[in-house]
């Protein structure tokens, strides 16, 4: 088992004394090189987890340990070197006038030497497949391209944890695909833990582990396939069951003995083909 990188111990958070708790007694761990997906409806507490992880918020109860350090006001600058974050709105996270200036911004803040910056710009833009857009102005990019640059900017500071907080929610289907593809490439080619926060069940398929949030509490923690199997419960907490899951259920009703919960079209077709050969 690889080592623990992030640890939440009985963490509770609320925005003010009189306010309701948005996070209640949450405990979980994230390991090195792991892809963890956090899913939940709006207001379930998933973005609060992200903000707690890099010290944008601090918990009233419990503690958060990242890379051996407890997150507090004294060390947030260290923590933020380790935890990079990409947000929802592609238009809110561009600071440079060109793509390469934008990638350079985070490195400038950390005083990285020029030669090294140039190397990293090349490397990270290639990682998100945006190397042909170095000198492009941000307003000429599509939403998906902007988000890819945002990912490159974060990768350039070599974080240990990369958090994508609903980074696909405002994109069109093509942009969404681009980002999921990029994220999966980055995860396999670089040594880092990845946390993707989403309300789209389709986007958790490739994750190693899924945490489902509901009303500020951890509702379930399991592998994607196990989560997909709990359709009725997912619907109850406001999540959408993917088409393939609904079809698998209807096939069962129609008398087809599906052997396991399919995660994608290919798995279901393969299963059906095996059954077909047997009849």
């Amino acid at each position: 088992m690889s080592s623990k990188l992030v640890e939440f111990k009985d963490v509770s958070f609320r925005y003010g004394e009189e306010q309701p708790w948005v996070l209640k007694n949450c405990s979980f761990e994230i390991f090195e090189n792991e892809w963890l997906a956090i899913i939940g409806h709006n207001g379930s507490g998933k973005s609060t987890i992200a903000k707690l992880m890099n010290g944008l918020l601090f918990p009233q109860e419990g503690e958060i340990i990242i890379n051996g350090k407890q997150v507090n006001e004294a060390n947030i600058w260290d923590i933020r070197k380790d935890v990079g974050m990409v947000f929802q709105n592609p238009d809110n996270q561009f600071v440079g006038t060109t793509v390469q200036d934008d990638v350079a911004f985070g490195m400038e803040n950390r005083g990285i030497p020029r030669d090294e910056m140039i190397r990293r710009i090349d490397h990270t833009l290639a990682a998100v497949n945006m190397q042909d857009y170095r000198f492009t102005e941000p307003h000429r990019l599509s939403g998906g391209q902007k988000q890819r640059v945002a990912i490159a900017s974060v990768l350039a500071i070599f974080p240990q944890v990369l958090i994508l907080d609903e980074a696909t929610a405002m994109l069109d289907p093509k942009g969404r695909k681009e980002i999921m593809q990029t994220v999966s490439n980055v995860q396999t080619s670089q040594k880092l833990s990845l946390i993707t926060i989403t309300h789209d069940l389709q986007e958790v398929v490739q994750a190693d582990r899924v945490i489902v949030m509901n009303a500020g509490e951890i509702w379930e923690e399991a592998k994607p396939r196990d989560i997909f199997g709990k359709k009725d419960a997912l619907r109850k907490i406001g999540l959408d069951v993917p088409f393939i899951g609904i079809l698998a259920d209807e096939l069962k009703h129609a008398g087809i003995a599906i052997s396991h919960e399919p995660l994608n079209h290919e798995e279901l077709l393969e299963d059906l083909w095996t059954l077909h050969l047997k009849t």
Binding site: H41, A169, D200, G238, L239, D240
Partner: peptide, 8 residues
């Protein structure tokens, strides 16, 4: 755009 599945 931007709403969760139930909201959509």
């Amino acid at each position: 755009a931007g709403l969760d599945p139930r909201g959509q």
